[in-house]
Amino acid sequence: MTTWSYIPTDGRCQRPAAQLHWNVMDRETRLKRLKFRSWHRGTREADLMIGGYFEAHSATWSDADMDWFETFLEEQDVDIMAWAMGVQPAPAQFDHPVLHAMRKMDFVPVSR
């Protein structure tokens, strides 16, 4: 049974936080969510870079890698692209093997 709580400031109902957190998702659902977020960034360039990387590498990720990528996707596209292309140094919290693999750009299709 789901319990509901009321927020006293405006009276709206809210689900308990634990039921909204990604930890309650199974691996398949979580990967589907990350796939959608990777391919719907806002610009075609970001979609190809981030979504393409996700498609090429996500099958081998551990739960810790998915945790990292989830946090990574919260950043702005211009920052992610700059870090991935090496234009700007990535902050320490994003210096991770997943970003290092993204820098190889071996997943971006190139027309000849």
Score class of each variant (00 low, 15 high):
His40Val: 05
His40Ile: 01
Arg41Glu: 06
Arg41Thr: 05
Arg41Phe: 04
Arg41Leu: 05
Arg41His: 05
Arg41Ser: 00
Gly42Trp: 04
Gly42Tyr: 05
Gly42Glu: 04
Gly42Lys: 06
Thr43Asn: 11
Arg44Cys: 05
Arg44Trp: 13
Arg44His: 10
Arg44Met: 10
Glu45Cys: 10
Glu45Asp: 08
Glu45His: 13
Ala46Glu: 06
Asp47Cys: 05
Asp47Pro: 03
Asp47Arg: 02
Met49Ser: 07
Met49Gly: 04
Ile50Gly: 00
Ile50Arg: 00
Ile50Ala: 02
Gly52Thr: 09
Gly52Glu: 06
Gly52Arg: 06
Tyr53Ile: 01
Tyr53His: 12
Tyr53Phe: 15
Tyr53Met: 08
Phe54Val: 03
Phe54Ala: 10
Phe54Ser: 04
Phe54Arg: 05
Glu55Ile: 06
Glu55Leu: 12
Glu55Asn: 14
Glu55Phe: 12
His57Cys: 09
His57Arg: 15
Ser58Ile: 00
Ser58Cys: 13
Ala59Arg: 13
Ala59Ser: 15
Ala59Pro: 01
Ala59Cys: 10
Ala59Gly: 14
Thr60Trp: 09
Thr60Gln: 11
Thr60Lys: 13
Trp61Cys: 00
Trp61Ala: 02
Trp61Val: 05
Trp61His: 04
Trp61Gln: 02
Trp61Thr: 02
Ser62Gly: 08
Asp63Leu: 14
Asp63Ser: 14
Asp63Ile: 08
Asp63Cys: 01
Asp63Thr: 13
Ala64Leu: 12
Asp65His: 04
Met66Gln: 12
Met66Cys: 14
Met66Ser: 09
Asp67Lys: 14
Asp67Tyr: 12
Asp67Glu: 15
Asp67Ala: 14
Asp67Pro: 06
Asp67Gly: 08
Asp67Trp: 07
Trp68Lys: 01
Trp68Leu: 08
Phe69Gly: 01
Phe69Met: 03
Phe69Ser: 01
Glu70Asn: 12
Glu70Gln: 13
Glu70Pro: 05
Glu70His: 12
Thr71His: 11
Thr71Asp: 15
Thr71Tyr: 14
Thr71Ile: 11
Thr71Ala: 15
Phe72Val: 03
Leu73Gly: 03
Leu73Tyr: 00
Leu73Phe: 02
Leu73Ala: 01
Glu74Cys: 07
Glu74Trp: 04
Glu75Lys: 11
Glu75Leu: 07
Gln76Cys: 06
Gln76Asp: 12
Gln76Tyr: 14
Asp77Trp: 02
Asp77Arg: 07
Val78Glu: 15
Val78Ala: 12
Val78Cys: 09
Val78Phe: 15
Val78Tyr: 15
Val78Gly: 08
